[in-house]
Write a protein that binds this DNA or RNA. Sequence first.
DNA 1: AAATTCGATATACATAATGTATAGTCAATC
DNA 2: GATTGACTATACATTATGTATATCGAATTT
Lengths: 214, 214
Amino acid sequence: MPPRSYVSPARSAAAAETRERVIEAASRTLRDESIARFSLDTVAKAAGVTRLTVYNQFGSRRGLLEAVFDEIARHGGLHQLADAMTMADPRAALDRMVEIFCGFWSRDSAVGRLHDAMATDPEFAEAVRERNERRRRGVTGLIDRIAGKSASQQARSDAVDLIFALTSYPTFASLSAGRSKDEVCRLVQAACHAALAPLLGPSSRGTGEASLEG
Amino acid sequence: MPPRSYVSPARSAAAAETRERVIEAASRTLRDESIARFSLDTVAKAAGVTRLTVYNQFGSRRGLLEAVFDEIARHGGLHQLADAMTMADPRAALDRMVEIFCGFWSRDSAVGRLHDAMATDPEFAEAVRERNERRRRGVTGLIDRIAGKSASQQARSDAVDLIFALTSYPTFASLSAGRSKDEVCRLVQAACHAALAPLLGPSSRGTGEASLEG
DNA sequence: AAATTCGATATACATAATGTATAGTCAATC
DNA sequence: GATTGACTATACATTATGTATATCGAATTT
């Protein structure tokens, strides 16, 4: 006879709660320790569950890291990107986008450790890269709106890739030594403005907007 | 009685040769596999020695990685930096420096894997960071020569840190998707030019040198 | 009320990696 | 010929991920 299966509200609620507890414990561990010392044993103990429970919930270390990443993304303010992209002025939208990502990179120091984890787990790295592709698409869209009709495809790609690199986590982390989040933000915004200059055509050099000054 | 110790030319020569063989095997392994699959077992077998020999020569996994990094640095063309720094025109020196580093980052793909290793080994990361400080000092020296007297300390720091980030390996790797080494080099050079603009004072905007175009 | 299902636990095991310890091998040097 | 030093052989301790099996206990179904 077929087994009778059922869904239990109380069960799923409890499971969801432990899942949250594990993610929270994992985030805390990532914040406190380096990725080298991030073990499922540590996380499980910090969450007050068994290591096997972590496997039940996330399948693997990689699954846990992805869950943490998604949790941070949910609470990191990236939802504001939708509004930013619909702004009338694409340059203002770019500034806003830089601001949103600076806020995202700085909000939870665990994101840095997650980027470290990309080095040792190629599949996790791929997962993070896919999530970053949204940023690249966003930049591409804005560049297409900013670029004049005479701008070559080459110039567009250059601008997109430069701005993508400038708004990446490694760049943010590098510039964060001795700077507040807002200072980094202004610096990156200025660098992005400079990266737009070639899109405007040779005639519009030196209009001020292309300068690095905020 | 004290043990009579001696130095043996033949012995040290043979040891130096096996050391080279291990480093070579480690470089090859780093080129072929991800850092996650970089184990002393693999390297030892590839070099035709025992794992214990690796420990005898390098003390630890970290010691081996540092030896590989130094070996790559020796053959990576960084010695050209000395000449570049003494060029009369500091802007030309900066261009040359970007060129030298693009060559360095692209010469041996093992450098990418070594940067990955920074994530899991904090002490190795510190060692690599110290070696990168030479680049930062070089940039600082050039900026001081380029900056006008009116340039604020803030503006100098901004330019130094931006150029340091632009010439870093992560930026190079990010821009390398779909670009040749030379194309990346020209793009980074242009971005560095743009980063210099604020140093020249507000009056010299739009002189062309500050544009992103090569 | 009894049977069952599901999340979590307990325990054990396989595998791989770093690192340490000890004894042994063999050619180079004294 | 005795000894030294680089390398080997073997073994062991530790830590981590991941898998397998049996069990407990509470929520749900019949």
